[in-house]
Design a protein around this nucleic acid. Sequence first.
DNA 1: GTGGTCTAGACCACC
DNA 2: GTGGTCTAGACCACA
Lengths: 121, 121, 121, 121
Amino acid sequence: MEWKFESGQPIYTQIIDQMSMRIASGAYQPGDKLPSVRDLAMDAGVNPNTMQRALGELERRGLVFTERTSGRFVTKEESVLRELHRELAAGYIEDLFHKLHQIGMSDEEIVRAIDEWRQEA
Amino acid sequence: MEWKFESGQPIYTQIIDQMSMRIASGAYQPGDKLPSVRDLAMDAGVNPNTMQRALGELERRGLVFTERTSGRFVTKEESVLRELHRELAAGYIEDLFHKLHQIGMSDEEIVRAIDEWRQEA
Amino acid sequence: MEWKFESGQPIYTQIIDQMSMRIASGAYQPGDKLPSVRDLAMDAGVNPNTMQRALGELERRGLVFTERTSGRFVTKEESVLRELHRELAAGYIEDLFHKLHQIGMSDEEIVRAIDEWRQEA
Amino acid sequence: MEWKFESGQPIYTQIIDQMSMRIASGAYQPGDKLPSVRDLAMDAGVNPNTMQRALGELERRGLVFTERTSGRFVTKEESVLRELHRELAAGYIEDLFHKLHQIGMSDEEIVRAIDEWRQEA
DNA sequence: GTGGTCTAGACCACC
DNA sequence: GTGGTCTAGACCACA
């Protein structure tokens, strides 16, 4: 499991995104215990406070929950996980359309390009 | 115009991608003269050699051409630009499918998600 | 049993309030022997003199009484306990109305809010 | 305007509560510019980070909004302010019932005590 | 000047 | 050991 950060965006939001991805992809399964804040922070090479902030936000979103003295766990709520999938997909799709709009493609051209790509692949 | 680099991938390939994007988006128009290697390198905060290498590759791909005495220019060949668009679009589309496959979506689900997203937006 | 003090108010009055609450709530039952001044003071983390002063006031109010040789005891006088309840209740109710007046609610609105709260809960 | 903190509860939550109270009471009017994070922090005698955290939460709740370089302002959304009043009132009322339950009063006795208190006052 | 982010390091309560 | 909170101090982008 690797961390990859790019400049120009807060690290804690990038952690949120990458942790969300890991949960959505099943790298962390529902009910799994996450590594401790300190371990995650060391692994990502960031300050524990920064990791804590990201995890706090993930908790606020319902993706993880905390048991005071034993650790953090991935939620088992299916509805939350379904919504996570929906939001991630919407985000990535929006990114795609945004980038392709930038190079002058219309929605119709994009849809056509997707169809063509699928036939090739 | 800003440069954004992420760790974990060679800088010069990232420069190639971003320069390609600028040409495809029209930020650099066909026939435009590019800034000097030294200026581009300073602007991007990279070593001139790195920028040189990236520009060499862009030239190999036909996106830019050099006139010995006066500098580098964006190609005016429409076929090259069309192909650039096609390749960029294919790359982004592939990225999208890759990410969504990672979170367990099938091709059909992805296509459906795109349709839903377009209706919402 | 925990002690909680806030700045901005004399400690000994806060002790009086919290001891009153314990008696009213039955944490200390009528006739119960109280811990020694020294133990109470240590437990609360205050100077024995401060605790002594608070206990003196509780005695003046009739909530506790002293038997020279054996210690301090919670009163068994029902009338005193009834009055204690009445005063505590009045104090808390006054607090509530004070706070809600501060945010601009009239007596009628407060009563209505209480009714609504009880229906929800 | 004074700050009062009690031990046993995180400072940042107490700041949230007290700032909410100030907004609800009109001490800060809708649209008012708040003092800067640093000024508020100095005034409250806490670290700027702690104040920042509290203000961030107030923003998440919609009570204040930020204009990047000019400061933070109290929301003008009436619905948010109405909801704030409702929540504050509910919280205080719940506190009252909780405390009075602790000293053995039933809901009916509490309501009766409130009526009696209002007649006396 | 403003808000926003990040690090380093400390202390706490809980079990 | 766990998460949670707090401080001190730094740097950034923006205008």
